[in-house]
Structures are given as C-alpha cells and as structure tokens.
Computed example of a mutant assay.
Amino acid sequence: MTRPITLTASYEHCRRVNARHGRSFYLATLLLPEWKRRHVHALYGFARHVDDVVDATGPGSRAGRAAALDGVTARLEASMAGEPVRDPVLPAFVHTVRSFGIEHGDIEAFMSSMRADLTVTRYDTYRDLLAYMEGSAAAIGLMMLPVLETVPGAARTAREPAAELGRAFQLTNFLRDVAEDLARDRIYLPLEDMRKFGVREAELERGGAGPGMRELVAFEAERARLHYRRAREGIEMLVPSSRPCIRAAAALYGGILDEIAAVGHDVLGGRARVPRRRRAAIYVRHLVAASAAARAERRPPPAGSRHGRAR
C-alpha cells in the first residue's frame, strides 16, 4: 500500500510549484519571514493544482476535468476530516488552513468558481465577471490574509483591500492571457465591453489587435489599476514584515500592465512579461525594509514591558 505524502514533502512540492509557475509572485514571497513562506506556497500550490485540473486539455476533457475536480474535492473533504490522502498539495494546504483558522467559506467560494470554469466560458457584463472573481481571486486574497498577519484590530477591515488585490492580480492575468484563454475557448473580457468597442470574437481568433481591441484592453487595464489603488490602504494594515512582499507583488503584477501599455495594448501579439532586470530591481528595492522588519519582529520586548513581565 502506498503511503500518503509527508507534510514536509507536501510543503516542498508547493514551493516548487510556486517557483516554477508563479515566478514573479515567488520572488515577492522571498521577502517574507521564512516561517511564513511555506504557508503562502501551500495556498498557492493548492490554487494552482485546482486551476490546472480545470484547465486540462485533451479529447473528452470536460468530463475528465469534472471527474478530476470531483476527486480533488473528495480528497480535500477527507483531508479536512483528518483522513490521510495521497495528494501532493493537500497535506500542506490543510495544515496551513488549520494553523491559521482560514475560513472554510473562502475555500468553498474558490472551489465554486473553479467548477464554473468547466461550463461557463463567457461573461456578459463586468458585474458577472466580478461575481466569478469573488471565488477565483478575492477568496485567494482572503485566504492569504491570516498568514500575512494584520496589525491589532485590523483583521476584518483588511479583508476588502485583500480581496481587491486578488481582483487586481486576476484581471491583470486575464489581460495578459487573452490568447491563451481563447485557446481553451474562454473569454474573460466582458461581452458588453467588447460590443462597446466593436470587438468581435473573430478578431481575437485572428490574433491581430485593431484599434477597438487596443481601446478595450486599455479600458480594462484602467479597471485593474483601480483595484490596485483600492487595495493599497490594506498594505498598512499588515504587520511590517509582510508589507514589503505585498508591495513588491503589486509592483510586479502592475508591471505587467505597464508592459501591455508599452506595446500599445496589443495583447494578441505576444505575452507581456516584466523584464528580468526590472523584477530584480523591484525585489532589491524592498529587500532592506523586509530584512529590517523581520529583525524587529524577532526582537524580544523590553524588560519590564507588559509582554515581558513574568506571570
């Protein structure tokens, strides 16, 4: 009988998934205190694992993907109930959920949006797309929040900015990945906006961005920037050692919008990437603050302080 994967191996698997598939985000996580990183990797690894299940391609893939997602759901429920499972990401994910009291409602919202990807391929309005992103993006930000930690009294207030950052990241990804999503017969550009700018699906399939398509992308990019601005106030609600990571992540993902703008908002001509030199510069810019904040948090309270007195 095959033994279930160990917790240590599961955390390492999630770290490798993050390093391989989320290079910009992985770079930002290096600014976190070491003990927090593995939990962030666990959340990313789980989200990526489920996303890969619903994105799988091949003959008869819709039925196969549905069955595979059912399998993930069943293993997740079993693992949450304390049963050992043979899954590379669930031991780390469930351990993180339990360790930080991550709300099960956020997990359920995420799984619901992933299941929607099996059947829903178009969104008529931006409101419809936002409803999808409540599970696929906002819920991820909310799951991350307990790991990142908030300053005293800010746990509830910080939820909406965390959700906004999740929306900003995903809308950025939608704009970057228009061609890739179209290959899976999915369009995450609201259809009413496509009609407003005179963009037809045939234009997306041809791969050449005309004036209307460029205007549409610029319009959606401004929406993403608005989400970034709304998320900004939440960074100060985090403990100091988590702020450099999130500032860097926002700069790295926001940089994708800058790269899209630099090519005239033509997202069909190639996948926008933040140059390696710029990514490195963003990381270095926040490294000193991250190191200082981590050292300060490790420092014991002064003798005689409220937290330092013997009880």
Rank of each mutant, 00 (worst) to 15 (best):
Y253V: 05
P33H: 05
L226T: 14
D266N: 03
I5V: 14
S99F: 09
E34Q: 15
M144Y: 06
V217N: 04
R159P: 05
K196L: 11
A42M: 02
H49W: 13
A202M: 06
T96L: 01
R200F: 08
Q170K: 02
R167W: 07
L145Q: 01
A293C: 04
G105D: 00
P211M: 09
M143S: 02
E12P: 14
A272H: 07
P190G: 05
H21P: 14
D106C: 03
E259N: 13
Y26V: 10
R16M: 14
G308H: 07
L43C: 06
L182W: 09
V267I: 06
A162H: 04
P161L: 00
R127P: 08
M133E: 04
R37F: 06
P59Y: 08
I260G: 09
L7G: 12
L252N: 00
P33F: 12
A42W: 02
D258I: 12
S99T: 15
R62Q: 15
H41P: 03
H49Y: 11
T96W: 01
A67I: 07
M237I: 12
S99N: 12
T2I: 13
N173E: 06
T57C: 15
Y123A: 07
I102N: 00
P4L: 07
M194N: 08
R98Y: 12
F219P: 02
I246E: 00
A218C: 09
E180W: 08
P33D: 10
G141N: 04
H39L: 00
A131R: 11
M144F: 11
G22E: 13
L142K: 06
A63W: 09
L175F: 03
M114L: 11
P91M: 08
M237R: 13
V97I: 12
K36R: 15
R86C: 15
L268I: 07
V284D: 00
L252C: 05
G82M: 01
R229D: 07
I102W: 00
G82H: 01
P146A: 00
R247P: 05
A289F: 05
Y11F: 13
R278I: 12
D51G: 11
L129H: 02
L226R: 14
E134S: 12
P190S: 09
P275I: 06
V53K: 02
V89M: 04
C245Y: 03
R278W: 07
A154K: 10
T121W: 10
F25K: 11
R16A: 10
R23S: 10
L165C: 04
A296I: 06
E236Y: 12
E83C: 14
V178N: 05
L257Q: 09
F174W: 04
G254K: 08
V50T: 12
H286N: 09
Y188Q: 03
A280T: 08
R243L: 04
A261I: 08
A249Y: 05
R276Q: 12
L30D: 02
G82N: 02
E215D: 11
R16E: 15
L142G: 00
I282F: 08
E77P: 01
L171K: 05
H95G: 12
A281V: 03
A250E: 09
R278D: 09
R48E: 06
A74L: 07
M80N: 08
S113F: 01
M143P: 00
T125F: 10
V288A: 12
R306A: 11
R86D: 15
H49F: 13
L189G: 02
Y283E: 04
R247G: 10
S24G: 09
D266E: 13
L43Y: 01
D51K: 03
